[in-house]
């Protein structure tokens, strides 16, 4: 798969959830450019264009990252922290999509800069509706900033941190 032009980065380790989500996105014709990362480490490699994704460029960030919190290796909270802690990636919208309804997860996610927090509904109809809405909103309605427009705003030292 061409990892250069990716609209959605889905970070999810459960194949069932992946299938259900992809099924929905396909049905809604939103699944053209999706990359699924199976753990936190792969997600971070993808985002920060390293290891297997070294050929990717920061200029082409995904339009949205759908992030589960319970992940092997590096957990979702850490992934979120790193994305939002780096000037190059902090503008990428991250939607936390998890089974947890814990208040502390919700608060912690927003504290770390999540753009949205969504509990995966048990009811598949609702789940489908949720995924569809997320796809429509972040891919079609939301207006992301141009990548370079952020550089001058940040200090040079800031950009490396």
């Amino acid at each position: 798969m061409n990892t250069e032009a990716i609209d959605i980065l889905m970070v999810e380790d459960d194949q069932n959830d992946i299938d259900l989500a992809l099924h929905t996105l396909r049905r809604e014709k939103l699944a053209n450019y999706i990359f699924v990362a199976r753990d936190g480490e792969e997600a971070l490699d993808f985002i920060f264009c390293r290891e297997a994704f070294a050929q990717r460029s920061f200029d082409r960030p995904p339009k949205v990252v759908l992030l589960d919190l319970k992940l092997p290796k590096v957990d979702g909270m850490e992934v979120l922290k790193q994305i939002k802690g780096d000037a190059r990636t902090k503008t990428i919208p991250v939607v936390v999509m998890t089974s947890s309804k814990e208040e502390r997860d919700l608060v912690a996610s927003y504290h770390r800069g999540a753009n949205s927090y969504i509990q995966k509904p048990v009811d598949f109809d609702k789940f489908r509706e949720t995924v569809k809405t997320i796809g429509l909103y972040w891919l079609l309605i939301n207006q992301p900033p141009a990548v370079e427009s952020f550089e001058p705003l940040e200090g040079a030292a800031d950009a490396r941190s």
Partner: peptide
Amino acid sequence: SHDLRAPLRH
């Protein structure tokens, strides 16, 4: 909250 809900969802 997390683990039991996932199979249900599936």
